[in-house]
């Protein structure tokens, strides 16, 4: 019985930068230009759907990490495992090839990452905003430099300015 890690190593060959057994999934990091090629190879192994498309903002390294969590429905052996196909992209030029043409299930998820991080998925069949309005999406809310302003519990009132508006 060949282990899943070996199977993936054999299929992807030297495309892999790093492969590690994380908690709950196996993370495979591939370079950006090999992402699409690797995805096609992984799909041929039997990983037939995308569970989640995630981006993480590493603001100090000026990078985004994009992870596709994929698994299988039709192959019962593979369905026990979750594979993370990750790649790092430049934060100032966030372009990544879309995998929605390979896995239809990634279509809506890529649209969501697009609006929350401003990452552009090249070749996506229908890249539009999904949840947010154009005004909010322009702020790219899930990036780390977007800080949520919280209201203070103390109401700050400028009494001088307030009194100046009154006749007394």
């Amino acid at each position: 019985m060949i282990s899943l890690q070996d199977m993936i190593k054999e299929a992807l060959g030297n495309n892999i930068i790093k492969i590690e057994d994380n908690k709950g999934y196996i993370d495979v990091v591939v370079p950006l230009e090999k992402l699409k090629e690797s995805a096609i190879k992984v799909k041929q192994l039997g990983f037939d759907h995308v569970k989640s498309v995630t981006a993480v903002d590493y603001i100090q390294k000026k990078q985004f990490m994009v992870t596709y969590h994929i698994s299988s429905y039709l192959n019962e052996e593979l369905s026990r495992h979750v594979l993370g196909l990750s790649t790092f992209i430049d934060r100032d030029n966030p372009h990544i090839p879309s995998l929605a043409t390979i896995w239809t299930s990634a279509e809506f998820q890529e649209r969501e990452v697009y609006e929350f991080f401003g990452i552009i998925f090249d070749g996506h069949p229908d890249l539009r905003l999904l949840l947010l309005t154009p005004v909010v999406a322009a702020l790219k809310p899930l990036r780390k430099d977007f800080v949520v302003k919280e209201d203070s519990i103390n109401i700050e009132v400028d009494y001088a300015a307030y009194n100046a508006t009154k006749w007394w």
Binding site: N22, K23, G24, S52
Partner: peptide
């Protein structure tokens, strides 16, 4: 520090967290 992933079968189907 670390990364983890978990899935559970909720009423309407599988829910996953990263």
């Amino acid at each position: 520090p670390g990364k983890s992933f978990a899935r559970v079968e909720a009423g309407r189907g599988e829910i996953v967290y990263y």
